[in-house]
Design a protein around this nucleic acid. Structure first.
Length: 740
DNA sequence: CACCCTCGAGTTCA
DNA sequence: CTCGAGGGTG
């Protein structure tokens, strides 16, 4: 179970929330003072600085932005409103926010205490990321539609709201009260958003940053002075807007109870719906706050699928009697709360761009950022791929950048927030030398974008990377040989304690080599070596205090022993030959049956293997002639590593064709019950099929389990048949015709 | 030669 | 997931 959607403690956010609250209070106070006396106790500069600081905090923590923040209500002191002011009959309150399950529980505990009841029923609805609107109906007729403004006075947008075509000018049914205010949210449907921007750009109009801005911009348009074409565009945009209503303002609930049998918030929605107003179908009623929390958690794992952007879930006490009993503070009702999900896109500071060197020597720049919470986890790094991408994205060191998680997993820097630049930012310069060993970087081939460190044999980053790669699941799958183990073996604190100069000695390791190794202790927060009293902290990972070897040490040696008899293709992958990954390695192993045969083969024979072309053939030939590569083979062989597939008939032997899935490509995705990721691939190959990584029109089947993401979507788009775990099992046993 | 598809590599966090 | 680049096809 993942608690990703319900982070437990967020001290930085709490601090920011406090500051935001203080700033808003101060700014509102100064603004009111200014309006009333036309004079102020602070300079314009100080006032502007406060507003800017508030804007900055809201940029960094979009979840703290409220609609009545001074940054959202139109502007500074000298601004005039474009639209006529409308006073709301009843103040439009905002909602208090909670950010965790604990805070939600604390809110509910207070509600239940104040209500004097152990059992309170709650209603949840999706929190629409749009514009709060107040519809004033008198005897069933729409009088005004107004934005929230500062909560007391908003802007009159009645004409534009009527142009939307979905808000009734006259309520249906009868027996409408003399005055009623309906509260709701206007939003721009996400599905139409990209189209809108394309059309806006084509027409030379502004492009919107997000659907929320599009809604706001569309609603605040004025007809005057527009050419017929632009008028048509404006009308079109208004027609795309949608509204969902979620409550009643003026007209006390008691009155509703008197005139209609409405006693709960959920019944209010039925009533509003009967009146012809658009209500959301996404509300639910729960009997306890625990059920609510569980719903929020589950929904958070898979938001979307709704026509509007959501930034959280609103929880309301369902019983209207309790609304009156609980009342409201000056800002927000006590009977409702907004649970805010961590935003999927955040702004954070790009502190630096650092270059790392991988096992192949490729130098990859990556972004080091102020840690930021995005889509449920804290991110501090993201790859920038190469210098060209850095340039394309246009980010400078020191920029505030937009950060998201591609596919909700991989952090990605989208680009800079140019408006927040202050001139201190500097451009990233790709280093000319390897940051790990100082060797000048060079492209492997002319015109290659990627720069590489040519010092493959001794560059510490490359040796460490290769050793780690050998242990990885896709290669020899050696438990206890991961990132930390590889670093300990190749780069311990004292270089003379390093048992490995290159991977050649890996299978010769003994307990005596491991015991003396000591490594620096790294701080998990900063990633820097920990220093206590001026001394670098060290730890011996393979030796206990009493001198005995640790479990890690004995495990490592035992697993190395087992790895010697791994399948040939895995050994090939472990050698880190350029372009030879699991697929090419499998093809080579199946065709040749032994490393000896591969090495004896000429360029043409290598390139004749399906999936292997001239470039991979050359990479193989080039690899074998390097003397220290030869040393790896010799020493591994002497240590007992098996370089052949027992019983293989020899190079070029007719491949056993056939199998039930012969000629069929299957792409596994998500968690298939009864199969590991590897296991599913193996099963497909064993049945004679091809296991794909990406879905295309050449894919015959997608086997999808729970948690499947974009591949499933792609399969649906392309009309590729989708199988669940049972269907997949039948496919493996009975062949494609059984499931088609 | 242009295209589409696939593979390899690097990468993040819990 | 994304980018770059190899392999294969039309």
């Amino acid at each position: 179970m993942s608690d990703a959607a319900l982070p437990e403690a967020r001290p930085d956010l709490d601090a920011a929330a406090d500051e935001v609250e203080r700033l808003i209070a101060r700014i509102v106070q100064l603004r009111d003072e200014y309006y009333e006396n036309n004079a102020s106790t602070v300079s314009d500069e100080d006032y502007d600085a406060m507003v800017r600081r508030l804007e900055q905090l809201e940029e960094q923590h979009p979840e703290l932005r409220t609609q009545d923040s001074p940054t959202q209500t139109v502007g500074g002191r000298a601004e005039t409103t474009m639209f006529a002011p409308v006073e709301h009959a009843e103040r439009m309150l905002s909602l208090d926010n909670v950010f965790s399950r604990e805070e939600l529980a604390a809110w509910a505990a207070r509600v239940e205490r104040d209500a004097g009841r152990a059992h309170v029923r709650y209603l949840t609805e999706l929190k629409i990321d749009g514009l709060a609107i107040n519809l004033r109906y008198e005897r069933g007729r729409l009088i005004t539609a107004a934005t929230r403004g500062d909560g007391v006075v908003g802007e009159d947008v009645t004409q534009n709201v009527l142009s939307m075509g979905t808000i009734p000018a006259q309520l249906t049914g009868n027996g409408h009260p003399d005055l009623v205010e309906i509260r709701g949210e206007i939003f721009f449907p996400v599905a139409a958003f990209d189209d809108l921007n394309a059309r806006q750009a084509a027409a030379g109009e502004r492009v919107f940053a997000n659907p929320r801005n599009a809604a706001s911009g569309s609603l605040r348009q004025k007809e005057e002075g527009k050419s017929p074409e632009r008028l048509a565009l404006m009308q079109e945009r208004l027609r795309l807007l949608r509204m969902l209503v979620h409550g009643i303002g003026a007209w006390p609930v008691r009155a509703i109870e008197r005139e209609t049998p409405v006693t709960a918030q959920s019944e209010v929605y039925e009533l509003l719906s009967e009146w012809g107003l658009p209500t959301s179908s996404h509300y639910r009623v729960f009997e306890s706050i625990d059920e609510v929390a569980e719903y929020i958690r589950r929904y958070g794992e898979n938001r979307g699928g709704v026509e509007h952007q959501i930034d959280g879930v609103v929880v309301k006490v369902d019983d209207l009697d309790l609304h009156l009993e609980l009342g409201a503070t000056s800002r927000a009702p006590r009977w409702a709360i907004a649970y805010k999900y961590p935003p999927e896109e955040v702004h954070t500071k790009l502190e630096n761009i650092v270059v790392s060197v991988g096992r192949t020597g490729r130098a990859t720049p990556f972004a080091v950022m102020t840690p930021a919470l995005v889509a449920g986890s804290t991110v501090r790094q993201a790859t920038l791929h190469n210098q060209q991408v850095v340039k394309q994205k246009g980010v400078l060191i020191g920029d505030t950048v937009v950060l998201r998680k591609a596919g909700d997993v991989i952090p990605e820097v989208l680009g800079p927030v140019v408006e927040l630049r202050d001139g201190t930012e500097r451009e990233f310069v790709m280093p000319t030398d390897c940051p790990e060993c100082g060797t000048p970087l060079a492209p492997a081939k002319e015109d290659d974008i990627d720069l590489r460190c040519p010092n493959a044999r001794s560059c510490p980053a490359q040796v460490r990377g290769r050793v780690e790669h050998i242990g990885s699941r896709g290669a020899l799958d050696i438990e206890a040989l991961g990132e930390v183990g590889a670093a300990a073996l190749t780069q311990p604190y004292l270089p003379e304690e390093a048992p490995l100069e290159t991977e050649a000695g890996l299978f010769e390791l003994t307990l005596d080599d491991l015991l003396p190794i000591r490594v620096r202790v790294h701080d998990p927060e900063t990633g820097m070596p920990r220093v206590v009293d001026g001394e670098t902290k060290l730890v011996a990972p393979y030796q206990k205090k009493n001198g005995e070897p640790t479990k890690g040490a004995t495990e490592l040696l035992a697993n190395l022993e087992k790895a010697k008899t791994q399948l040939l293709w895995r050994i090939l992958v472990a050698l880190s030959i350029r372009h030879v990954g699991p697929v090419a390695a499998r093809a080579l192993a199946a065709h040749f049956g032994s490393l000896h045969a591969i090495r004896a083969a000429g360029r043409d024979e290598l390139a004749s293997v399906p999936g292997v072309g001239p470039i991979i053939a050359d990479a193989l030939l080039d690899w074998f002639v390097v003397d220290w590569h030869q040393e790896i083979l010799d020493r591994w062989a002497a240590a007992g590593v098996q370089f052949e597939t027992p019983g293989h008939p020899g190079p070029g032997a007719a491949q056993v064709e056939g199998g039930i899935l012969s000629g069929i490509t299957v792409v596994p995705t998500g968690a298939l019950e009864g199969f590991s990721r590897e296991g599913a691939v193996e099963a497909i190959l064993a049945a004679g099929g091809k296991a794909g990584n990406s879905v295309s029109k050449k894919t015959d089947f997608v086997a999808a389990g729970p948690g499947a993401g974009s591949k499933l979507t792609k399969a649906e788009e392309l009309g590729v048949p989708i199988l669940d775990a049972d269907g997949f099992r039948r496919l493996l046993e009975e062949g494609p015709d059984a499931v088609r």
